[in-house]
Design a binder for these strands. Structure first.
Length: 1068
RNA sequence: GACCCGGUAGCCCAAUCGGCAGAGGCAGUGGAUUUAAAAUCCAUCCAGUGCGGGUUCGAGUCCCGCCCGGGUCACCA
C-alpha cells in the first residue's frame, strides 16, 4: 500500500466540501462558541483572470490556510473566507479579447479558480464567498460612494461628517469662509488665526454668499467630487488612470500603453483629507517597516512655508505696462518651499508650464518662445518627460519678481521640471542648495550664491566679512599672517562650536597682533596646535590659488559651489549671507533658521508655515464598461443628485457592444461605453425632471476597498455588515496592553506590490466607514505580512527572447529543471543555444510552472510543503523543481513509518517511547509551535523532518510519538495527515483535535555537555549534572586536563559561567 | 540618485538575551536494491559567516565605513 496522494487528496477535499468543515458561524448562529477567541485571516483578494492561479497565489493561500488550520487547533474561532475581485480592466480586457460578455467570462473564470483553490486543499468558508460584481455587493459599494458624496472632512473634529452638518455650522457661524474658500473657525484661538490666510483675511459669512457660491463651496468639501484635473489619459485603453496605475516609464500598468497628461473633468475622492490619519495610524498596525515606509513616502508629508513673490513691473517698458492689465500692486506668485531658510539664495523663479500666471508674466518679446515651449511640454507624454529628465529645459518669460527678503529682482522662467500638481506649481530656485536648481542655473548661466554652508565655510564667510569691514588691521601684515589668522579663526569656530563670530574675531586679532592677553583671553584653537593644523589641512585646497582668490570667492558668495555640486545638507550646516536690516539668519542652524524666517515672513504678511503632501486626490472615474456604475444623476442645469438608497444598486445596462473606444490619437475625447447605452437606462425622470446617469464607472479598486467587511456578514441585505458580526470579527483584544494592533483582520497576507494601491485605498475607505460608525476599528488590517516573490530560472535565445523553459535541455539531454543553476552547464532549446538567467516566475519570461502540474505529479500536500520549505515566507526565493523530491520523500518516509508498504499493516505500537525519543517529541512540539507562531514554516517543517528521521530508525514506532508528528503536520499537509490520523483508528477528525503541547521538564537531561573556553577559545567539553550550580560548574571545568594545561602558570582573572551554555575562563 | 531588505557549505536555508557555527533539504561521493536505468534505502563529504575597522571575556548576531545582490521610489521644491 503505497502513499497514493491522488486518492487521498481527492477523498479529503470532497469530504471538506460536503461536510462544510471550515464554515464558521457568526455570533448568534447555531454552533457558535462564544467562549473561544476569534482569529480572522485573509489572503489578498484574487482576480478571476483567464490565466488561473499561479505559484504566487498558491504560496499566498497556502500560508493563510496553514495559519487558519493551526489557529483552529489552538482553539480559535477562525474566519478564513475567499471571494473574487471580478470587476475591472483585466477581466474586461480578457472579455474583449475573447469577444464575449465580461459577465460570462468572469463567471467561467470564477468557477475555474474555485476548482483550482479546492485542488490546493485550502480550507475556506465557501458559504461566505461572493464576487464584487454581484448586484448585492455592488449595491453597498455604491451606497458607500453616496455617503462619500454627502460627507465632508471636518478640520476641527478631524473626521468625516455629513454635508448637512457643514451647512449647519456655516449657518450658525461656527465657521466662516476665507478668501481661498478655507474654513475659519469663529472665535478661533490665535493659533487657528493663520487659517485666515495672508494679509487681510477677508472673511465671509455664509449669509453673504449667493446660492451658486454656496453650492460651489460645498462641492469644494465633499469627499467625492467632480473636478477638472490633469489626468493620466490612456488613449489605447480609452480611459483615465490613477497615478498609482501608471508605471515609472509612463505606461499603463495594465497593457503597457502610453499615458498622456491632459485636463479632464472627473470624479475624485478626497483621500488627501485623511493624509494625517493615514500616516499617524501606521504607528498602530503590525506591518512590515518597509511597507509602512513606502506608504509614508507616498503620502509624502512635508512642512515648509508658502512665500509670496511680488511680480516686478519696473523692468517692463512704459508701453508694455500700459498694455499690461495685471501690473497691479497685489499681483504675486506664491511658492512652496521646504527650505525657507534658503530664501536669501533664491536667484530666480520657475513656474510649471501650465501655471495660470504664465501669460500674465510673459513679456511680448518672449511670448512666442513661451508659447512654443508650453505646447511642447503639453504634448509630451510622461514617458518623454522621463527620458528627457537628464537634460533640464526651460524658457525665460522676460518677467521678474521681487525676493521679499532682500528686494532683489529675480528672473522668472518656466520649465517642466516644476510640476503643476505639487505645492503651488511655482518654485523659488535656490541653485546653491538644490541639485535640480543647480543644474538648471548652470545650464542657463543663472547666479548661484551660498546661503547655507558647513561650519568651516560659514566661518570663512564670517572672517572675510569682518576682514573687509576692518581692512586697516591688516595693512602692515603679510599673506602668511593673514593665512594663520584665518586658520585660527576657522579652527576656533569649528572646534569650540562657536558661532559668536565677533567674539572669535576679537580673540584671534588679539593673538595675531602678538599682544599679550590678560589671563582671561583664551588662546585661539588652543594655542594654534594640532587641532588648528587639521583645519589648515582642510583649508589648504581652498587657498591653493592664493588667499586673495579665496577672499574673492567669498565676496561673490560662491565658496560652497566651487565643488560643482549643490550643498544640500541641513545637519550641521549654518546659514550664511542671509541678513537684511530686520532679520539675520547668519550662524543659525537650519532648523532654527527655518523657524526664524518663517516667523519673519508671517509678521511681514508675505508668507506662512505650510504643510504639504505629495499624495493627490484619488481619480475615481474610468471610461470602461466593466465596473460599478456611479449612483449619480445629472440634472438639466448641471445639478447633481445621488440615486436614492432604495433604488440601489444601479446595474449595468445590457449592451451588445461594451468595448471601450480606444484610440491611438492622444487628443481624441474619452467616450465611455455607457454613452452608447439605451435611453431607457441613461435617462431617469424624477418629479418631472429628466436626469442623465453618470456614464463613467468606478475603478476596480472600489470593490477591494471593503470586501473584508462583507465576508463577515455577506447575506445581510439591510446593511453592508451587521453590527454584531462586525464587532466580533474586527475588534481585537490587545494582548499585552502594548497598543500595536489597531484591530481588524488579524493576519493579512499578500504581495508587497499592493503597498501603495490597495492597502492605501482600503485604509482610506475604512477610516471613512469608521467615521460613519459602520466600522468600529480605525484600521482594516491589524497585521499585514508581505510574502516574497517566487523566482525561477529562465532561458533566452540568441536574439534575447525568452524561450519555453520546459523545453530546455542540457548537453546530455537532461531537462534543465533537473540541473538548473549549476555551474558549467550549457543549455539548448530545440537545438538552439540558449543562455540561463533568473527572474520572477511568470508568463513573460516563459518560466511559469502551474500549481496543477505539481499537484498531479506529487500531490498538493507536497506542493504546500515545498512552497513553505523553500525559505522564509517574507523573502523572495527561487523555484527549483528538482528540490521538490526532498519534501516528497519526507511524506513517503512518514507513510512507511506508519504502514508496512507491502502488507498495508500498521507498524505503530503502543510501546512507551524511550526517554530520548520522548524528549525529541517534546522538543519538536516546542520548536514547531514557536515556528508556527513566527510564521517560520520552513523551520517548523525542518523540525518535523528531524523527528520523522528519528522515527524511521525505530523498529516499532510508538503511537504517541507518531500521532504527535501527524498532528503537527496537519496544518501544512492536511490530506495525508488526516488520512493517517483516520487509519490510526481515530473517530474524530484531526482538524478538530487540539494542537499538541510540550512539557518543558521533559526537555531537561540529567547530564549536559558544556563547552569550556579559555580566553574565548574552546579547550574542552565536559559532561556535568544538569542541576550543578555555578561553583560546581566552575570546579568541574577546572578539573579538565586540557583546561588545566591552558591555565597552567597563569592568573585567573575572571570566570564566566552561562548555565547550560558555556564556561569561559579568562586568564592573563 | 535616495530609501528598504538581504549576503552563513557547490546550492536553498537553521542558529532564542551576544555564548560550542549546522538542524533540515538539494546536489555530490560510496554502498544496497535492479538485467539496466529511474525511483527508493543506508552511509558520507563540505564553510568559519561578503570586506575592513570597533565594542566585548566572547560577535553570524551590536556599532561605524565599504562591496555585492534583490526590491521600491524617483525632477515632490
Amino acid at each position: 500500500m503505497k502513499y497514493d496522494f491522488n486518492a487521498i487528496e481527492q477523498r479529503w477535499q470532497q469530504h471538506w466540501d460536503n461536510a462544510r468543515t471550515f464554515a464558521t458561524p457568526n455570533p448568534g448562529e447555531s454552533g457558535f462558541d462564544a467562549s473561544k477567541p476569534k482569529f480572522y485571516t485573509l489572503a489578498m483578494f484574487p482576480y478571476p483572470s483567464g490565466a488561473g492561479l499561479h505559484m504566487g497565489h498558491a504560496l499566498n493561500y497556502t500560508a493563510t490556510d496553514i495559519v487558519a488550520r493551526y489557529k483552529r487547533m489552538r482553539g480559535f474561532n477562525v474566519l478564513h473566507p475567499i471571494g473574487f475581485d471580478a470587476f475591472g480592466l483585466p477581466a474586461e480586457q480578457y472579455a474583449v479579447e475573447h469577444n464575449v460578455h465580461p459577465r460570462i467570462t468572469t463567471e467561467k473564470n470564477i468557477a475555474n479558480m474555485t476548482a483550482q483553490l479546492k485542488r490546493l486543499g485550502i480550507g475556506y468558508d465557501w458559504d461566505r464567498a461572493f464576487a464584487t460584481t454581484d448586484p448585492d455587493y455592488v449595491k453597498w459599494t455604491q451606497w458607500i460612494f453616496t455617503k462619500l458624496y454627502h460627507s465632508y472632512f471636518d478640520p476641527v473634529a478631524n473626521k468625516a461628517a455629513s454635508i448637512s452638518t457643514l451647512i449647519e455650522k456655516l449657518e450658525g457661524e461656527d465657521y466662516y469662509v476665507g478668501t481661498d474658500g478655507e474654513l475659519i473657525v469663529s472665535g478661533a484661538t490665535e493659533s487657528l488665526e493663520p487659517l485666515a490666510g495672508i494679509g487681510d483675511p477677508n472673511i465671509h459669512k455664509w449669509t453673504e454668499l449667493t446660492q451658486p457660491q454656496r453650492e460651489r463651496l460645498l462641492d469644494e468639501y465633499r469627499l467625492a467630487f467632480m473636478a477638472e484635473v490633469e489626468v493620466n489619459w490612456c488613449p489605447e485603453l480609452g480611459t483615465v488612470l490613477a497615478n498609482e496605475e501608471v508605471t515609472n516609464e509612463g505606461k499603463s500598468e495594465r497593457g503597457n500603453f502610453p499615458v498622456y497628461k491632459r485636463p479632464l473633468k472627473q470624479w475624485m475622492l478626497r483621500i488627501t483629507a485623511y493624509a494625517d490619519r493615514l500616516i499617524e495610524d501606521l504607528d498602530h498596525v503590525d506591518w512590515p517597516g518597509s511597507i509602512k515606509k513606502l506608504q509614508r513616502d507616498w503620502i509624502g508629508k512635508s512642512i515648509g512655508a508658502e512665500v509670496d513673490f511680488r511680480i516686478d513691473t519696473l523692468g517692463a517698458t512704459n508701453a508694455e505696462q500700459r498694455n499690461d492689465k495685471m501690473s497691479g500692486p497685489d499681483e504675486t506668485i506664491r511658492v512652496y518651499t521646504t527650505r525657507p531658510d534658503t530664501l536669501f539664495g533664491a536667484t530666480y523663479m520657475v513656474l510649471a508650464p501650465e501655471h495660470p500666471l504664465v501669460d500674465t508674466i510673459t513679456r511680448p518679446q518672449r511670448a512666442e518662445a513661451i508659447r512654443a515651449y508650453r505646447e511642447q511640454a503639453a504634448s509630451k507624454s510622461s514617458i518623454d518627460r522621463q527620458t528627457d529628465a537628464k537634460e533640464k529645459t526651460g524658457v525665460f518669460t522676460g518677467g521678474y519678481a521681487i525676493n521679499p527678503v532682500n528686494d532683489e529682482k529675480v528672473p522668472i522662467w518656466i520649465a517642466d521640471y516644476v510640476m503643476m500638481g505639487y505645492g503651488t506649481g511655482a518654485i523659488m530656485a535656490v541653485p546653491a542648495h538644490d541639485s535640480r536648481d543647480f543644474e538648471f542655473a548652470k545650464k542657463f548661466d543663472l547666479p548661484i550664491i551660498d546661503v547655507v554652508a558647513d561650519k568651516p565655510t560659514a566661518a570663512i564667510y564670517a572672517y572675510v566679512e569682518r576682514h573687509d569691514r576692518e581692512p586697516e588691521l591688516f595693512t602692515d601684515t603679510g599673506e602668511e599672517k593673514l593665512r594663520k589668522s584665518l586658520v585660527d579663526f576657522v579652527a576656533m569656530c569649528v572646534n569650540q562650536d562657536e558661532t559668536d563670530y565677533d567674539k572669535v574675531w576679537g580673540v584671534v586679532n588679539f593673538w595675531r597682533q602678538d599682544k599679550t592677553g590678560t589671563e582671561d583671553t583664551p588662546e585661539p584653537a588652543q594655542g594654534r596646535g594640532s587641532i588648528a593644523m587639521i583645519w589648515q589641512d582642510a583649508l589648504e585646497p581652498l587657498m591653493a590659488d592664493g588667499i586673495e582668490k579665496l577672499f574673492e570667492l567669498a565676496r561673490e558668495r560662491r565658496l560652497g559651489t566651487i565643488s560643482g555640486n549643490a550643498f544640500v545638507a541641513t545637519e550641521g550646516a549654518l546659514s550664511v549671507n542671509s541678513e537684511n536690516d530686520e532679520v539675520s539668519l547668519n550662524g543659525n542652524p537650519a532648523e532654527y533658521a527655518k523657524y526664524k524666517i518663517t516667523h519673519y515672513l508671517e509678521t511681514k504678511g508675505v508668507g506662512k508655515e505650510k504643510e504639504n503632501v505629495k499624495l493627490r486626490d484619488w481619480l475615481f472615474s474610468r471610461q470602461r464598461y466593466w465596473g460599478e456604475p456611479f449612483p449619480i444623476l445629472h440634472g438639466p442645469n448641471g445639478e447633481i443628485r445621488t440615486v436614492d438608497e432604495t433604488d440601489l444598486p444601479v446595474n449595468l445596462p445590457e449592451m451588445d457592444d461594451f468595448k471601450p473606444s480606444g484610440s491611438d490619437d492622444p487628443d481624441a475625447p474619452p467616450q465611455p461605453p455607457l454613452g452608447r447605452a439605451g435611453d431607457s437606462w441613461k435617462t431617469v425622470t424624477i418629479d418631472g425632471v429628466a436626469y442623465t446617469r453618470e456614464l463613467n464607472t468606478m475603478p476596480n479598486w472600489a470593490g477591494s476597498c471593503w470586501y473584508y467587511l462583507r465576508y463577515l456578514d455577506n447575506k445581510n441585505s439591510d446593511a453592508l455588515v451587521g453590527e454584531s458580526a462586525e464587532n466580533y470579527w474586527m475588534l481585537s483584544e490587545k494582548s499585552s496592553g502594548e497598543g500595536t494592533h489597531a484591530g481588524g483582520v488579524d493576519l493579512y497576507v499578500g504581495g508587497a506590490e499592493h503597498a501603495v494601491l490597495h492597502l492605501l485605498y482600503a485604509r482610506f475607505w475604512h477610516k471613512f466607514l469608521y467615521d460613519l460608525g459602520v466600522a468600529t476599528t480605525p484600521e482594516p488590517f491589524g497585521r499585514y505580512f508581505a510574502q516574497g516573490y517566487i523566482q525561477a530560472y529562465c532561458y533566452r535565445d540568441e536574439r534575447g527572447f525568452p524561450v519555453d523553459a520546459s523545453k530546455v535541455v542540457n548537453a546530455n539531454g537532461r531537462p534543465a529543471a533537473e540541473v538548473e543553476g549549476q555551474k558549467g552547464e550549457s543549455f539548448t532549446c530545440e537545438g538552439e543555444q540558449v543562455t540561463e538567467e533568473f527572474g520572477k516566475m511568470g508568463k513573460s519570461l516563459k518560466n511559469a510552472i502551474g500549481p496543477e502540474e505539481i499537484c498531479e505529479q506529487y500531490g498538493c500536500d507536497t506542493l504546500r510543503l515545498y512552497e513553505m520549505y523553500m525559505g522564509p515566507l517574507d523573502q523572495s526565493k527561487v523555484w527549483k523543481t528538482a528540490d521538490i523530491v526532498g519534501v516528497h520523500r519526507f511524506l513517503n518516509r512518514l507513510w512507511r513509518v506508519v504502514f508496512n508498504e507491502d502488507s498495508g499493516e500498521l507498524r505503530v505500537t503502543d510501546d512507551t517511547p524511550s526517554e530520548e525519543l520522548d524528549r525529541k517529541v517534546h522538543a519538536t512540539v516546542k520548536r514547531a509551535t514557536e515556528s508556527m507562531e513566527a510564521m517560520a514554516f520552513n523551520v517548523a517543517i525542518a523540525a518535523m523532518i528531524e523527528l520523522n528521521n528519528e522515527l524511521v530508525k525505530q523498529d516499532a514506532p510508538p503511537r504517541s510519538a507518531v500521532e504527535t508528528l501527524v498532528q503537527l503536520l496537519g496544518p501544512i499537509a492536511p490530506h495525508v495527515a488526516e488520512e493517517v490520523w483516520q487509519k490510526l483508528g481515530h473517530e474524530t477528525y484531526l482538524a478538530d483535535t487540539d494542537w499538541p503541547t510540550w512539557d518543558e521538564a521533559k526537555l531537561v537531561q540529567d547530564t549536559i555537555e558544556m563547552p569550556v573556553q579559555v580566553n574565548g577559545k574552546l579547550r574542552a567539553k565536559i559532561n556535568i549534572p544538569t542541576n550543578s550550580d555555578q561553583d560546581a560548574i566552575e570546579a568541574f571545568a577546572k578539573e579538565d586536563e586540557n583546561v588545566q594545561a591552558h591555565l597552567d602558570g597563569k592568573t585567573i582573572r575572571k570566570v564566566i559561567v552561562i548555565k547550560g551554555r558555556l564556561i569561559n575562563i579568562v586568564v592573563g
